[in-house]
Amino acid sequence: MGGVVAGVGEEIEAGLGAGVVGRTTDGRRLFLLDRRGWVRAGAEDGGRIREVIRPVPGGGRIVVELDPGVFAGWPDGAGKQTVTAVRVETDPAGGHPPPVAGQAPAGPGPGDSRAGTVVVDPVTFSETVRDLLELVT
């Protein structure tokens, strides 16, 4: 089975976002994603975390945006969270993911020499869909 490929990530974003964008979750569920390889973005002004990130093997990452964002260290403090977007990102300087707090940048993946393209293999895609559907209520 071949990988799912998107030059700018639009096809992948549409597939991953279907059924989750606009839906709500609670902060505790967000913190449980850590067990499955997701990483919380750094806290912004006011101590809120507004993104959870899944690194993609070979370079790139899947980012889920939340509103209003959870408080770092207090997942229940901000109430319900709405998924506002799901996007796929790559670093324009070589197809590698932007650094995630507490994690070393990924190197080039096998067979992916196309700068600006994120390749999401079927297993990663399926696991991400599973995680997102379990996230929302």
Rank of each mutant, 00 (worst) to 15 (best):
G73E: 02
G94K: 05
T128W: 03
P108R: 14
V123R: 15
F71L: 13
S113D: 15
A85F: 07
A115W: 10
P75Y: 01
V120K: 02
R87E: 00
S126C: 05
V88Y: 03
W74N: 04
A115L: 03
L132F: 06
T82I: 07
D67T: 10
T84N: 06
A115H: 11
F125Q: 08
V70W: 01
G69E: 00
P98L: 14
G102N: 10
P68A: 08
P98K: 05
R114L: 14
Q103R: 15
A106P: 14
P105G: 02
T128E: 03
A101M: 10
F71K: 01
V83P: 01
P110F: 10
E89D: 13
R114F: 04
L132P: 10
T84P: 04
T124F: 01
A106S: 15
S126K: 11
T90E: 05
R61F: 00
G111H: 12
D76N: 09
H96C: 09
G79V: 06
K80A: 15
R87G: 13
L66G: 07
D67L: 10
E89Y: 03
V86L: 03
E65R: 02
T117I: 13
P97C: 04
G111T: 06
V63Q: 00
I62Y: 05
D91I: 02
V120I: 15
P105Y: 05
P75W: 01
G94T: 07
F71P: 00
P75I: 06
D112F: 04
D67I: 02
D76G: 12
P99R: 14
S126G: 11
P92S: 06
F71V: 13
P97F: 01
A101L: 15
G73A: 05
A115C: 07
E134P: 00
G79P: 12
G94L: 08
P97E: 15
T128A: 14
V123E: 15
D131Y: 04
P105H: 06
L135H: 09
L133V: 10
R114E: 14
G69R: 03
P98V: 10
W74Q: 05
P97S: 13
G111E: 04
G109I: 10
G77I: 00
T82P: 02
P105N: 03
P68C: 07
A85D: 14
G79T: 07
P98F: 14
F125N: 09
D121P: 12
V64G: 02
T82C: 05
E65M: 10
V119Q: 11
R87V: 13
R130T: 11
V70Y: 04
A115V: 15
G116I: 08
G73Y: 00
R61E: 08
